[in-house]
Each structure stands twice: as structure tokens, then as C-alpha cells.
Amino acid sequence: MERAAIDNATTNVAEDLLAFVGDIYQASYQPEHWNVVISELCRRLGAKSGGIHVEDYHQNTRYMMACYGLPKVTELSYRLGVAKYDPVYQIQSQRPIGKASMVSRHDEARLTHPLYYRLIVKPNDLGYVAAISFFNDEHWHVGIGVHRSFNAQPFGEAELQLLDQLAPHFQRALLIQRQLHLQESKAQTLEYALSKVMLGTVIVDQDNTIRYRNDLADRLLDCHPALVQTQQGFKAYYPDDDERLREMLQRLRKAPDGEGWPRDQAVGLRHPDRSHPLTVIGVPCHETPHSRFGPAEPGLVALYLSDPSASFNASAEQLIQTFGLTRREAGIAIALTNGLDLKEISAQKGVSLATVRTQLKSIFHKLGVNKQQDVIRILLASGIGNAPH
């Protein structure tokens, strides 16, 4: 009995977090929903306030995309230039992408950055700041900062680990939002935008018949056993997962105008041979343009599929042909994209660290970049290696 209670509690926690992930993806299509996401994130982290900050390198601007718990005057002042006095931007830019950390303490900021302390920290009671960067390339620097009061305790490892865990979902949602913004500016179709999103994308109709799949969705459905294609459309491996998936679709279709969407728009589909569930995020398609998956009609739902256990699995030959890398350079680029640092690559390849650095410089030259994160960005954005194992 006690074991069952523990299992139920664990399941409830996992489903609650998965529901929050659904909120994150909803914000990619409803930018105003980012404020809801930030407020919920602050609640989970025990933060008094927080915000998504953006540095747009093309427009040379800094602003808050969304915030919670901060006075409106603070958001406005950031847009008017006060952000240039905030050292958190520079501190974050020096931290690894997707890795949360404490970046400011009021007692230290008072001594090291007195102007920042006087203009921002003290007036807004930002005693402790934890932050994480999602992107930092030639286009933009995007991250989240969350704050606690002078009288509170600093953020602990549990809070920082939660930010790390959520980072891939924020990154994907922000990429979706950016792609859709480009779509609007270039008058592209929804189908084209979806083909550029590095998530498996499936459009299903009122009868749960698949009307459209992008290439990555095809590969996921072919390779991940938690969700299989049938003559009726699809079916989850476990009956209770299948029931939860279809209940989610029914709930999404009850909000034809997008109002009052349920928070639990996500489900995790399990399989005994996989250590991580296949993540399925559902979003109603309220205004779907004509495309090869049909004209706008009631009941269409977009399902976004993601396999957390999938790695970048391009072959060396693909990178050799595409980017002109040598076989050894391709191996280093693949290892780097899968999260290994230079020391780990050195040990894995059985070569010296100096040799790895020399080969990395050659990779930089051939890709026209000068940062490791740019190598990762280019390889992931290329679409090569997106197929799951």
C-alpha cells in the first residue's frame, strides 16, 4: 500500500510537470501566454519575480519578452535603456547554454556593481538572482532570470536543476515562436513553418486520422515503439496511455476559440524498452490555412512529438559531404553536439586535448563560426541527424 502511494505521488508530480511543459509550448503560439509561464515558473521555484530577457544583436536592443512580479516601470525602463546597466546579461553570456546558476547576490552586487544595485537591485528587491541562457549566438541572447527578496534564502540546487530540466522545452518553444515570426514577415505558409521546427509534427482531424506529418514525425513514429501508426491513425503502447492521449484530444477540441484551454495539454507515452517517455504536446488548430493536410476545419489538433532520449546521430559521412569536414573533425563535431566537453572528447577519441582544440579550430573555419555553441546550433539547425535511434 505504501509503495503504491509513493508511485501515485511520483506519477502525479511527473504529470504536473508535463502539464507545465504544455504551457511552455502553448506560449510559442500565443506569446502573451509567456507571462503565465513565468508566473507559474516563479511559483515552482519559490521566486518573487522573474522574466524572459532578450538581447537582439541585429536590432541592438535589450528587452523583456515576458515578466512576472516586476513593476511595469521596470519593464519600460529596460526598453528605454536601463538594461545596459544590468551585469546579469554579461554574466549569463559567459555561462554554458542550458545550465542554470546563481548570477547575483545583493551583498556582492552592492560592492561590485553599485550603479546596478542602486538602479535595479534595491528598488525591485532583487536579493538573489538565478538565471539560465537558452541561446547566445550571432542573432540573439535569450534567457530567464528569477529573483528572490533580500530577506529570502538563495536559490538551491533543486531549483537550479529544475531550470536545467526545463531548458530544452524553452529552447524548442522559443525556436517555434521565432520561426512563426519569420513566417509572418515572409508570408510563408503554416506547413513551411512546421517543416522547419525540430519537433515531430502531426495534424489529426476530428476522427483522429492523421492528415499531415513532417519528416521528423515520420521517423519518430517509425522508430519509437510508444506510439504506433494504425489504419485508424495511431495507438499508444499502453492502453491507459492511449486513453489519456485521446482524452487530451477531446479536451482540446472543446475550446474552439482558444479560450480556457486545459493546462494538461501534454502526455508522456511509455514503453518498457525506453527509459524516457515520448512527449506529446497537443495544440488546437483554430486557423489552419489551406495546405496539403487540408483546409481549415473544426477539430484539427496539432501534436508535437519529442523523444528526450534521442541524440544527434548524424553519420560522419553526412558531415563530410555537407560541411567538408574530415572524418576526425566530424567525430568531434558529433560528440560536441551530443553534450561532451573537450576533455571528454579527448578521452573518448584517445587523442590529446591540444589535438582536439586544433581540430576544433579547423571546424570553426569550415563552418564560419568562432564558438562551440555555434557549431552545435548549425548542426542541429541543418536537420541532419534528427532521426531518433
Rank of each mutant, 00 (worst) to 15 (best):
Q318T: 10
L278R: 09
M198I: 07
I378Y: 09
Y89E: 05
D86Y: 11
Y128K: 00
P71H: 00
H276A: 04
F170G: 01
Q94A: 08
T326M: 08
I384E: 08
M1T: 10
E2L: 08
V202S: 03
H276C: 06
V88D: 02
A335D: 06
G294C: 10
K235C: 03
E329R: 07
V280Y: 05
R3V: 15
D240Q: 13
V103T: 12
F323I: 11
P123Y: 00
A5F: 12
I132C: 01
M248Q: 11
S311N: 06
S309R: 09
I52P: 03
A314M: 05
L221R: 00
Q90L: 12
L160R: 05
R357Q: 14
I144V: 12
D257T: 09
K349N: 12
F150M: 13
A316M: 13
I120M: 02
E317L: 09
A47K: 04
L342M: 06
H365F: 14
F293L: 07
I345R: 03
I38M: 06
E287F: 15
L269W: 07
C285E: 15
K99E: 06
M64A: 03
R251D: 12
L175C: 06
W140S: 15
H286G: 14
E243W: 15
A387M: 06
Y237N: 06
A217F: 01
S306W: 11
K122F: 00
E15R: 15
L300E: 12
A387L: 01
N35K: 03
L342Q: 02
I334F: 05
A226W: 13
N313S: 09
Q229F: 02
A193H: 09
I24G: 03
R3T: 15
S133P: 04
T10I: 10
S185K: 12
I203E: 15
A333S: 13
N214T: 06
R79Q: 14
H389Q: 15
L166N: 00
R172H: 13
L80G: 02
A314G: 03
R328S: 06
N12R: 15
G50E: 04
D207W: 13
P262T: 11
G368M: 09
F323L: 08
L325W: 09
M102A: 06
Q188N: 13
R118N: 03
